[in-house]
Amino acid sequence: MIEKLQQRVNNDAGLVRRGRYLSTTFLLEVGRTSWLITIFEGRIVSVTSGPFVMPSSSFALRASEDDWSKFWSERPPPGSNDLLALVKRRALKAEGNLQIFMAHLRYFKEALGKLREGAGA
């Protein structure tokens, strides 16, 4: 499912344009499964699944499978409808160089929202 991120983000011209100054690799953890997602100038160039021996990333977003599935449901319940809602409930851990995450917060919220049910391709 996470692999769909690449096509869905890259197909959204507005999102790619807003991310044109963003080039980084971040780690996404869904429970015990992890992915390294590499972005170059707003386009996702690779989504690689773990496990990794020495994953290198600018920052990591970690939450349980249950919390991500609520976030990615078609109509997320209160408390699961936004990355910061998850952070507020201490359900999502954001760790690492968060300057990149915060400077491009709208991009990351909208990119990860692309995995929501019904978000389409």
Binding site: N81, D82, A85, M102, A103, L105, R106, K109
Partner: peptide, 12 residues
């Protein structure tokens, strides 16, 4: 960017 991050923080 203060404006971008403020809007993004409260969007949800």
């Amino acid at each position: 960017h203060g404006g971008e991050v403020s809007g993004a923080i409260v969007s949800g």
